[in-house]
């Protein structure tokens, strides 16, 4: 085992007592590649596996992630119990009807407002892409 790897394990053990409960991810665009999709959704899945509540917010071009029938979308996330909220205004503007959105995605009229409340009052971590 390398010294760096030992350092990594130690580092994470020390921090292990800190219980994180909730993470919010704000997606304002589609992933540019499969690799990036894996990274964005992978972060969500990993946090979920660690027992955290995970909420993905889709804003702007991010709402395309919720459209049914594409190779990379948020279905796997939803199946794992990750919550997804999408901006109703952005969906409408991009011609994505309610029926074309993955079931269980919550469509929200004033997404920015809900998002701000969530990150300021509930979330431990927030990442925006």
């Amino acid at each position: 085992m390398s010294a760096l790897r030992k350092n990594y394990i130690l580092h994470n053990k020390v921090r292990g007592d800190q219980k994180l409960a909730r993470i919010c991810l704000l997606l304002m665009r589609l992933p540019r590649s499969d690799e990036e999709a894996e990274r964005m959704y992978g972060m969500a899945h990993h946090a979920k596996e660690q027992g955290m509540d995970v909420e993905i917010y889709l804003l702007g071009d991010g709402v395309f992630c919720a459209k049914k029938g594409q190779k990379q979308n948020i279905r796997t996330a939803l199946e794992k119990g990750i919550f997804v909220r999408a901006s109703a205004k952005d969906l409408r503007a991009r011609a994505i009807s309610k029926e074309q959105v993955e079931p269980r995605v919550e469509i929200i009229e004033d997404l920015e407002s809900i998002f701000v409340e969530d990150i300021m009052e509930k979330a431990d971590r927030v990442i925006s892409w």
Binding site: Y8, N12, R15, L20, I23, R39, H46, Q50, R125, I127
Partner: peptide, 15 residues
Amino acid sequence: PNEIQDIILNHGEHI
């Protein structure tokens, strides 16, 4: 990647 995700979660007070 998994180790990096752990670091982001545990260390990323701000990301």
